[in-house]
């Protein structure tokens, strides 16, 4: 039996009058790839923020890797984000005046100490060994997203969160990025939770859940 990495019960997030996420029960296994689909405003990003420790629930229970995120202090939450979670955004948020390798080292710096050799190796793993010294502006969209992946995995997170990571990419680049993520998951054994609008992208996951108006309306396993 696979062990459970994420467990939520009645997880809720309200913003004043608006209920962005209605009580949600969810279990994600260690090493699983979960895709989350839904329309804009369906609560996908809210769920992702709660799982990534970027936001706190209004109510309900949420446990990730044995940590009860409701009771973690601010310092504990920061440590959780630093050591447990890696995030890939649609807008990659790379620092424009730093080179690719320096962007990775920045993530190492916030985690612990920078290590250039390790940062180079990480970029080589995502196929950017020849673009180490290029700044984000000199890279294509797909390459930028690969730098983001290298940045997200450099600190060996157990949970990788993707917020529409291929939203800005063409078909070819999307495929390259998804293949890369798939390979890395096989090597590193991390869990992926990825929010997407794209059915093709969602199909890379082991399971897909559909949210609508803050409620999980459907769940599909791979091959269904």
């Amino acid at each position: 039996m696979m062990d459970v990495l994420i467990e939520t019960r009645g997880l809720t997030r309200n913003y004043g009058e608006i209920c962005a996420l209605k009580p949600l029960d969810l279990r994600v296994n260690n090493g699983e790839w979960l895709s989350i689909m839904g329309h804009s405003g369906s609560g996908k990003s809210t769920l992702l923020n709660l799982l990534g420790g970027l936001d706190r629930p209004s109510d309900g229970f949420i446990r990730v890797g044995g940590e009860d995120l409701r009771v973690l202090s601010e310092d504990g939450m920061a440590r959780y984000r630093r050591e447990f979670v890696g995030i890939i955004f649609q807008q990659h948020h790379l620092i424009p005046y730093l080179t690719a390798v320096e962007n990775i080292m920045m993530a190492q710096y916030f985690h612990s100490v920078p290590d250039e050799a390790e940062a180079r190796t990480a970029l080589e793993r995502v196929g950017l060994g020849h673009r180490l010294k290029n700044r984000p502006g000199e890279l294509s969209g797909g390459e930028q997203q690969r730098v983001c992946i290298a940045r997200a995995i450099i600190n060996s997170p157990r949970l990788l969160l993707g917020d529409e990571p291929t939203g800005n990419l063409d078909h070819g680049s999307t495929r390259v990025v998804m293949e890369l993520l798939s390979e890395l998951r096989a090597e590193e054994q991390f869990t992926i939770i990825m929010v997407t609008h794209n059915h093709e992208v969602a199909a890379w996951g082991d399971r897909t859940i559909y949210l609508d108006d803050g409620v999980m309306v459907r769940e599909e396993l791979k091959g269904d």
Binding site: V113, D115, E116, A117, E118, R120, T121
Partner: peptide, 14 residues
């Protein structure tokens, strides 16, 4: 030392 340590460790990893 720390930077050099990184190179050494990366070589061992490799």
């Amino acid at each position: 030392r720390i930077r050099h340590g990184g190179v050494f460790h990366a070589a061992l990893d490799s």
